[in-house]
């Protein structure tokens, strides 16, 4: 079980959360300026790194917050966690 440090609830089992994917993907902010290629990239493409990965987890069975998590995909180790707007660095 991965223990995800929810910034609101404290460390919780990952089973309480739903994985919500790559947090480096930024939805085009200005739809009028966004090209088809921008949407295509946003919806379909992923860096999919082995190692630290910035991602979202939804605390579905908890406080219902989306939590931003920096997690190593090769070890599952959580390196940092925060709110969606936070900039995360390894080591919390």
């Amino acid at each position: 079980m991965i223990r995800i440090p929810c910034p609101h609830c404290g460390p919780r089992d990952h089973a309480e959360f739903s994985y919500a994917g790559d947090a480096t993907k930024i939805r085009p902010a200005d739809p009028d300026a966004a090209t088809a290629a921008d949407w295509h990239d946003y919806v379909y493409f992923r860096d999919n790194p082995r190692g630290p990965h910035m991602e979202y987890w939804h605390h579905t069975q908890g406080c219902r917050a989306y939590v931003k998590v920096l997690r190593d995909t090769s070890t599952h180790e959580v390196l940092a966690a925060g709110m969606p707007g936070d900039t995360l660095e390894a080591g919390r």
């Binding site: 609830c9 919780r12 089992d13 089973a15 309480e16 605390h59 579905t60 069975q61 908890g62 219902r64």
Partner: peptide, 10 residues
């Protein structure tokens, strides 16, 4: 108080 999972329920 905790929001959590119990018997598969929120």
């Amino acid at each position: 108080v905790a929001q959590t999972s119990l018997f598969q329920l929120a």
